[in-house]
């Protein structure tokens, strides 16, 4: 077929029905659309955080240990879990379902490690006195500016909302993947790939949450000690 003829038949053939215009199944397309909408949820939250941060005096309270060390290890866990997930998907593409199951279980374990580390990190902050709408007293003292403007108490709200929603996504993903791992032999390759899409999306979101929430709020001068 000449290129010219192909160009002519392009519009008619692709969108007349009976074909898959995107060359992916409807479930995979559905997951992509879900990912788009979910990333808008996270962008809106991060944008709200940026709005508050730009219009307020904002505390930068995270010490190297435990906050930054923990969050870095968490990042490592999540990135590695993405790698094991992609290994699982490519094992399933080769038709090696048992291998896929092993890699997916490794992914779940790394995801759960992320959640556990994050819980410990939350616990550090909560025991220090951070609440959704209150800062610990010594943070307020330290971060009040020289002209007397106190730091915004909404720090905790943005922190717990964004990281909490992300943690919820990780937990949901671990649940989803455990169902996939249990039924791996009955599922088609595309279904495993779709679960991979979701998991990588969770990783992707953390790639924005980690720098914006943690790295941008590092307590370089050790004020909160």
């Amino acid at each position: 077929m000449s290129t010219e003829a192909r160009a002519e038949s392009f519009a008619a053939a692709d969108w007349d029905g009976g074909t898959l215009p995107y060359r992916v199944g409807h479930r995979k397309l559905g997951m992509w659309l879900f990912i788009v909408s979910d990333s808008l949820t996270f962008s809106a939250l991060l944008m709200g955080y940026a709005y508050l941060r730009a219009s307020n005096v904002w505390p930068t309270p995270f010490p190297f240990y435990p906050s930054i060390v923990f969050s870095s290890v968490m990042t490592f866990c999540l990135l590695s879990s993405s790698l094991t997930m992609v290994f699982g998907v490519s094992a399933s593409a080769r038709g090696d379902k048992a291998g896929a199951r092993k890699w997916i279980i490794a992914t779940i374990l790394l995801g759960l490690a992320f959640v556990v580390l994050h819980m410990i990190e939350w616990n550090h902050l909560i025991s220090e006195g951070l609440r959704p709408f209150f800062l610990p007293e010594h943070w307020v003292k330290v971060f009040t500016t020289t002209d007397g403007t106190p730091p915004s108490p909404l720090f905790g709200a943005t922190f717990f909302a964004i990281t909490g929603l992300h943690m919820f996504h990780v937990l949901t993903g671990a649940l989803y993947l455990s169902v996939v791992a249990a039924r791996v032999k009955k599922l088609k390759h595309e279904d495993i790939e779709i679960s991979g899409l979701y998991w990588h999306f969770v990783d992707l979101v953390w790639m924005f949450v980690f720098p914006l929430i943690y790295i941008m709020s590092v307590d370089v001068q050790g004020l909160t000690k």
């Binding site: 993405s82 790939e193 899409l197 990783d203 992707l204 790639m207």
Partner: peptide, 10 residues
């Protein structure tokens, strides 16, 4: 994000 979307998410 672009690396993850392009390669991991295929």
């Amino acid at each position: 994000a672009a690396l993850i979307i392009a390669y991991f998410m295929h």
